[in-house]
Simulated scan of single mutants.
Amino acid sequence: MSEGPVRKPVQKVIRPRVGNDRGVFQMGTSQIKRVGLGRRHWGDIYHWMLTLSWTHFFLLVGALYLVTNLAFALAFFLVPGSISNARPGYFLDTVFFSIETLATVGYGYMNPGSTYGHIVASTEILLGMVEVAAVTGLLFARFSRPTSRIMFSDVAVITPFNGVPTLMLRTGNERGNLILEASVRATLIRRETTMEGQIFTRFYDLQLEREHSGVFALTWTILHKIDESSPFWGKSQQDLHNEGATLSVAVSGTDDTLNDFVHARQTYAAEHIYFNHHFADIMSDKLEGNVRILDYSKFHDIYPDGTAGGSMPGAALAHPG
Results as ranks from 00 to 15, higher is better:
Lys286Ser: 02
Ser252Ala: 12
Asp260Trp: 00
Leu102Lys: 04
Asp301Tyr: 11
Asn173Ser: 03
Ser53Leu: 00
Ala315Leu: 03
Arg34Trp: 09
Gly310Gln: 04
Ala121Met: 03
Thr136Asp: 02
Val184Phe: 09
Arg142Ile: 02
Thr221Gln: 11
Ile179Tyr: 01
Leu317Arg: 06
Asp281Glu: 13
Arg175Leu: 13
Asn69Gln: 08
Thr193Lys: 01
Tyr109Ser: 03
Ser236Gly: 15
Val132Pro: 01
Leu70Phe: 12
Asp255Ala: 00
Val10Leu: 07
Leu188Trp: 10
Gly234Asn: 08
Asn111Cys: 01
Phe275Val: 04
Asn259Ile: 05
Arg175Asn: 12
Ala264Gln: 09
Val6Ile: 12
Val215Pro: 00
His300Asp: 15
Gly306Asn: 00
Val164Met: 04
Lys298Phe: 14
Asp227Glu: 09
Ile199Tyr: 01
Ile282Cys: 05
Gly137Ser: 10
Glu100Tyr: 02
Ile189Tyr: 10
Leu178Tyr: 13
Ile158Tyr: 14
Arg185Lys: 14
Val35Glu: 14
Gln11Cys: 04
His212Gln: 10
Gly62His: 13
Val35Tyr: 14
His224Arg: 09
Asp93Val: 05
Val61His: 09
His319Tyr: 14
Val164Arg: 10
Gln237Asp: 10
His263Tyr: 10
Thr257Leu: 09
Leu126Met: 08
Ser230Cys: 07
Ser84Ile: 01
Leu247Ile: 10
His241Arg: 12
Gly4Ile: 15
Leu126Phe: 11
Ala141Val: 03
Met168Cys: 12
His272Asp: 15
Ser122Phe: 08
Tyr109Arg: 03
Arg40Pro: 12
Gln207Ser: 11
Arg265Phe: 15
Ile293Pro: 00
Thr254Phe: 06
Lys298Ile: 06
Gly108Ser: 06
Ser82Asn: 11
Ile199Val: 14
Thr29Cys: 02
Phe57Trp: 12
Arg15Asp: 09
Tyr268Lys: 09
Phe76His: 11
Ala63Lys: 11
Arg292Met: 08
Arg40Lys: 14
Thr51Ser: 15
Gln237Gly: 15
Thr307Arg: 00
Pro160His: 15
Pro5Trp: 06
Gly309Phe: 02
Tyr116Glu: 04
Gly309Ala: 01
Ala63Ser: 15
Gln266Pro: 01
Asp227Gln: 08
Gly106Ala: 07
Gly128Phe: 04
Asn259Ser: 05
Glu124Met: 04
Pro160Glu: 15
Ala86Asp: 05
Ser183Gly: 07
Met151Gly: 15
Asn111Phe: 07
Gly172Leu: 07
Tyr274Glu: 14
Met110Trp: 05
Arg87Phe: 05
Ile179Phe: 00
Phe58Leu: 13
Ser82Met: 08
Val249Trp: 01
Met1Pro: 00
Leu139Ala: 14
Phe279Arg: 07
Phe76Arg: 03
Ile273Leu: 03
Ser229Trp: 07
Leu258Trp: 02
Gly253Cys: 01
Trp233Lys: 06
Ser248Arg: 05
Glu243Cys: 02
Ala75Asp: 06
Ile32Ser: 03
Ser213Ala: 08
Arg15Pro: 00
Gln11Asp: 13
Lys298Asn: 10
Leu223Met: 12
Phe152Cys: 11
Phe261Pro: 01
Tyr109Ala: 04
Tyr268Glu: 06
Phe72Thr: 15
Ser213Met: 08
Thr187Trp: 08
Thr221Ile: 10
Lys298Thr: 07
Leu74Arg: 07
Ala75Trp: 02
Phe161Met: 09
His263Asn: 13
Thr147Met: 04
Ser2Asn: 08
Ile222Ala: 02
Glu211Trp: 03
Val132Asp: 06
Asp205His: 12
Trp54Phe: 01
Lys8Ala: 13
